[in-house]
Design a protein around this nucleic acid. Sequence first.
DNA 1: TTCACGCGTGAATCCCGCA
DNA 2: GTGCGGGATTCACGCGTGA
Lengths: 374, 374
Amino acid sequence: MSNLRRASSVSASPEWLNTIIKGDCVSRMAALPANSIDAIFADPPYNLQLGGDLHRPDQSKVDAVDNAWDQFESFAAYDAFTRAWLLAARRILKPNGTIWVIGSYHNIFRVGAIMQDLGFWLLNDVVWRKSNPMPNFRGRRFQNAHETMIWASRDQNAKAYTFNYDAMKAANDDTQMRSDWLFPICSGGERLKGEDGHKVHPTQKPEALLARVILSSTRPGDTILDPFFGTGTTGAVAKRLGRNFVGIEREDDYIEAAADRILSVEPLDDAVLAMTSGKRAEPRVPFATLVETGLVAPGTELTDARGRWQARVRADGTIAANGEAASIHRIGAKVQGLDACNGWTFWHVKEDGRLRVIDELRQIVRDQMAAAAV
Amino acid sequence: MSNLRRASSVSASPEWLNTIIKGDCVSRMAALPANSIDAIFADPPYNLQLGGDLHRPDQSKVDAVDNAWDQFESFAAYDAFTRAWLLAARRILKPNGTIWVIGSYHNIFRVGAIMQDLGFWLLNDVVWRKSNPMPNFRGRRFQNAHETMIWASRDQNAKAYTFNYDAMKAANDDTQMRSDWLFPICSGGERLKGEDGHKVHPTQKPEALLARVILSSTRPGDTILDPFFGTGTTGAVAKRLGRNFVGIEREDDYIEAAADRILSVEPLDDAVLAMTSGKRAEPRVPFATLVETGLVAPGTELTDARGRWQARVRADGTIAANGEAASIHRIGAKVQGLDACNGWTFWHVKEDGRLRVIDELRQIVRDQMAAAAV
DNA sequence: TTCACGCGTGAATCCCGCA
DNA sequence: GTGCGGGATTCACGCGTGA
């Protein structure tokens, strides 16, 4: 068990909190107390059933997912595995806890049907639209440009699950957060590489995706369990966002990489993490996307063009000034004593000593999105 | 049976072509010949499991799907129904036919798992992103802004299914069509209304969605069956796009509305329907033809684009390098140390001091052949 | 210092006709 | 059915290199 607990941890917290547990997730979850977990994020094997090698048009070979842990003898074997871990997960979930499972068309239908059979109550299916997916090299299908996440409560009757509706809405330019989310795949500096320069894990998920999952359906201080921890994206984002995590993973290489990674994560300030709560006052790239993708770091100070007013960016995509938090538009209006304000053209960030209006940053994201649009 | 056949129909075509068959889709499909349908589009009941009435914030009542045909006693009952109609559908599908099924998170996971169990081979899941979805009025979930379509072939081994890759790519600004499609929901003038001004069918799909389905995976003249015909969107779009249809529907009201609707549809001109097709559709021209016609003289030296490798053309249409002679493709692969190579785009000839790819010479031959055929 | 360009790569169920 | 071989097929982004 890799212990990554902070010195500030409450002494009464269980010894498995903020650790990586080595082993098979079914038996390890069985060893945890029932009704102890606030939220679960699971990225199980997809059972890809790939055929032979695949080459790009330039004859380079695609580095496919051919790991032993993704191999199953049959649909029945995959179903049995899925049923077992979902049952174990359901036992440790609090009555009002929720679970997220991510998958592709290879496995997600089996997972979803089994979740319904076991009594989970589906709340949403959420589509992760990839802004830069791998092409279909042979031109025989549509480009597989998304993955699917299922979000479910433990029971149909569980009505008090956590959903930070107002925070999501405020983060999405004051309209409801939709069930289709656009994010790039995990690449570049975020992608963990081994000493050989090769990716440590074949299916590392982007932190921005996990950030929205965690911000939408958990509260600071909650405990999030990931039964297929891999290289610990769930743990890293949970720690950064002031949540506790529990990871379960079988492979030593992954555990080691995850432990190093999480150790270097610095949790955000409590003030930045404070959630928007209650009914908001009245009033299309969401500002949250800029935060989730890292274009604007949480905690960044925003100012108007003349530097007369300041606000601070929070992790959920709202901003705060004078003790109040809301969308970029609302806070922009508030500090000026006006009824309305276009936050996109009002607020600026300081870059290299210069002010840059955030509308320019939105344009960057829009350009990315235009490539993916219809 | 509502007969909507055009006078121009070939007399030898079966009597059920371009008609709406009244009755239960399982027994009606059983009465059709096996291996007779090119494509199926199915919009089965979603098994919505709604609780009580839902009201908007202004207290107006949401007109939900509460029809008898959407009620099932249990998941098991829904599964049995799904299995039955999918089995019947699979029997009438041609070996290289494909099937589309649309659903929401309430039912699509069960449908997808059963499709896999029955031997269908999933090709893509395609997300219909709604540009104007209904909001989540209670603010307890993400806005349910999409539906999911599964596209599958009859068997894993069926490789020759229709996919109009080049047409889709051209329609999408010359980049591959992705698995997420953005369309508005069916409303306004397209939405069929009864004499009372009330919508005729609760789940009428937009014609644009069906158009992309049909254009991507069928050819003009193909036969498309819809076992849950409703108000006939599939039939209307199929007719407009020069395809044949077969509809099966139980409710007289829907059949009547669909028949009227389809009668008023005017098929598009063949010229408009002609599909973009890439090199795959071009006649095969052996490299030997270029030598035989004198476009490339025996003894000519071929090089790659950067002049790193050379080969010499032989009179029989093979080329030689490093003491070996074989096709332009084999030698191209050999000199590079690869398994495969497209010799047409790899090899160049020197003309007036410039390099010219031999694929251009092939195009000259193809143009000559086309001119001669007129 | 900046820009242009080449190269590598990502959860992939990825060919088809003829003998 | 199997085997063989022609030849068709890629999008976005990060990084390194060289001018």
